[in-house]
Nucleic acid binder design. Structure first.
Length: 562
RNA sequence: GCGCCUGUAGCUCAAUAGGAUAGAGCAACGGACUUCUAAUCCGUAGGUUGGGGGUUCGAUUCCCUCCAGGCGCGCCA
């Protein structure tokens, strides 16, 4: 079977051959290169391919083709019947062709595993805390936050599929000055509504949602807070606004198909006295010093460009301090790897946070930050502005209303998150071939139609006898292409998990859908020939399962009809 | 000024860990529905991978340099 075992045993065979070669030549190498088996782009290059001979030739200054020749000879001696043939090609690649039977086995595997197909134990249960979105509760989510949400949610699903134990978390920045500003902004709008002539502060939050909140308060509480601006009143407005906004954020995320395992409040770090003990720990380790009345963390010891304040001269802990405590808390809760997803504008913050993590005794690599680049919205070819302060932005909710969840998610996930997303609303809205989401979903819907037709003709997956089915009938080029694509799914999921790149799944989906559409156009699945129909239905049902599983990883629906 | 990211077809993006002839979609042009959904398929055209050097069997990928764009450089969060 062309699965993990095949892969591994082939690698083992190659490794043995390499050692044999070196021994014959009397060459000693401290270690040989890792054997890499890739699926070639070009079908003419076999089912799997390795460049080991080329790598070796560089290390021992030998001829690559000669090395490859020897390895192939050895392999043919030890071949346990899984290989159909082995070829040397190009400058020294070794290309492997498997027995067709092995290829067909993947279909049995898919049909048997169903929604589990594609899962692996790559992560071996490693505990990962994935923190993302974590937007300040001072305003609604906008489109850029949506991208982070889509990436984070999809990544959590991919990591879980690859055998990691993932917990997702939203960090609520509910402590600090910006919350006072929020409270004040709403209070002033409220008082303006009551006819008072007060100027709105320049640094206040200007969005319409602030006015809406003020109106709500006026409806519920009337003129109770007229002409008031004492701390107690501000606090009331602050917590009112915060709760309301946070609730909206949660609702938007649910509409977007994103739910967090945990919501973590920054304020709780203070109420549970977790911030100052961590600073103390840093002090005991000698990583902090006093200067100009403030307490500085020596992040330069760990490669940061300058030291950072943790406690300000006025005695208050800086945002950085609670963030250190927060990350320490994550480790204390038993997570081995922390992944944070941040907007790219926070990149300057990475080094100091990594420094802090190291100072606390954790490894630098166990804390990983994924930077998500900005989103530019286009409408009729023109950029739509997105400034939070000025209140001119398109909210995630607006976007969802306009294009729907599936399209929005796909557009955020279709390209690498570290490149800028250009989100063209006109394309997203068009239900046409320009829109790749529909292309993929259409493939799925077509398969559903086929299955229905099969039912009418009494050819269904349940009726097929898996022992008697003749998969050798699937010998068309298009069919073999599809089978090969299906075989690579697990690897794609793993790669996507290791590299933390959901867009690999999106790309895979597009390729699989494309292969299916081509096949569909060329060949009839359900025909008069029963055995052939059964085999083809078996193939197409496998495609359906993989489409479903891949769409799930992106959080996109699979409609039966379109 | 310093740092991080980006630069690939007219446009939006790919290119599996340095691999084989740099690929898709859109836009352009020409074809295919009496069929399981034409939201599909087939074909044509489109490139000095920002410029220049280097490393090697081989570079879009790694190193140096220059150019262009984005972002960051608070006792804000």
């Amino acid at each position: 079977m062309l699965n993990e075992t095949t892969h591994e045993s082939l690698k083992l065979l190659i490794t043995e051959s390499v050692f044999q070669y070196l021994k014959n030549k009397g060459i000693e190498l401290k270690k040989i290169p890792v054997i890499i088996l890739t699926t070639p782009k070009d079908p003419a290059h076999g089912h799997l391919s390795t460049n080991i001979a080329l790598q070796l030739s560089g290390m021992i200054s030998g001829n690559a083709k000669e090395i490859a020749g020897f390895i192939v000879q050895e392999l043919e001696k030890n071949n346990r019947g899984m290989l159909d043939r082995v070829e040397i090609a190009g400058p020294g690649f070794i290309n492997f062709y498997f027995q067709k039977d092995l290829l067909y086995n993947i279909l049995h595997e898919i049909i048997a595993e169903k929604d589990r197909f594609g899962c692996s134990d790559l992560g071996k249960g490693e505990k990962i805390l994935l923190e993302y979105v974590s937007v300040n509760p001072t305003g609604p989510l906008h489109v850029g936050h949506g991208k982070c949400a889509a990436v984070g949610d999809s990544l959590s699903k991919i990591l879980r599929a690859a055998g990691y134990q993932v917990s997702t978390e939203y960090y609520i920045n509910d402590h600090g000055k910006q919350m006072d500003t929020l409270g004040q902004s709403v209070l002033i709008r409220y008082r303006q509504l009551l006819g008072e002539e007060i100027e709105f502060p320049e640094n206040g939050y200007q969005g319409d949602y602030i006015v809406a909140l003020a109106k709500e308060v006026r409806e519920k509480y009337g003129t109770e807070f007229k002409a008031k601006d004492d701390q107690e009143t501000i606090n009331f407005f602050k917590s009112y606004a915060q709760q309301k906004i946070l609730q909206d954020i949660k609702e938007d995320l649910i509409l977007f198909g994103v739910e967090f395992d945990n919501w973590f409040s920054e304020e709780s770090l203070y109420t549970q006295d977790k911030v100052y003990p961590v600073i103390d720990r840093l002090r005991q380790e000698g990583f902090v010093y006093l200067e100009k009345g403030a307490l500085w963390f020596k992040s330069t010891d760990f490669g940061d460009e300058k030291d950072r304040v943790v406690t300000r001269a006025n005695g208050e802990a800086a945002y950085f301090a609670s963030d250190i405590a927060y990350h320490d808390d994550k480790y204390k809760r038993g997570f081995q790897t922390l992944i944070d997803i941040w907007g790219s504008d926070h990149h300057g913050y990475i080094n100091r946070m990594k420094a802090a993590v190291q100072a606390l005794g954790y490894t630098r690599d166990s804390f990983q930050v994924l930077l998500v680049q900005f989103v530019t919205l286009l409408r009729a070819g023109k950029t739509v502005g997105m400034s939070t302060r000025g209140g001119q932005f398109i909210t995630l909710k607006d976007l969802l209303k306009e294009v729907g969840k599936d399209v929005a998610r796909y557009f955020f996930l279709m390209y690498s998150y570290d490149s800028h997303t250009e989100f063209d609303l006109d394309i997203a809205k068009s239900q046409s071939l320009e829109n790749p989401v529909y292309y993929i979903q259409y493939a799925y819907a077509r398969i559903c139609s086929i299955i229905k037709k099969g039912e009418i003709k009494n050819i269904t997956l349940d009726d097929i006898n898996k022992e008697q089915i003749d998969l050798k009938l699937l010998d068309k080029r298009e069919e073999l292409e599809i089978i090969k694509k299906l075989m690579s799914f697990k690897k794609v999921v793993e790669r996507s998990a290791i590299k933390r790149k959901p867009y690999l799944i999106a790309g895979y989906l597009l390729e699989l859908a494309s292969l299916f559409h081509k096949y569909y156009t060329e060949y009839k699945i359900i025909s008069r020939e029963r055995t052939l129909s059964e085999s083809r239905l078996y193939l197409v049902c496998s495609v359906k399962i993989v489409l479903e599983n891949a769409l799930f990883l992106l959080g996109i629906g699979a409609p039966q009809k379109m």
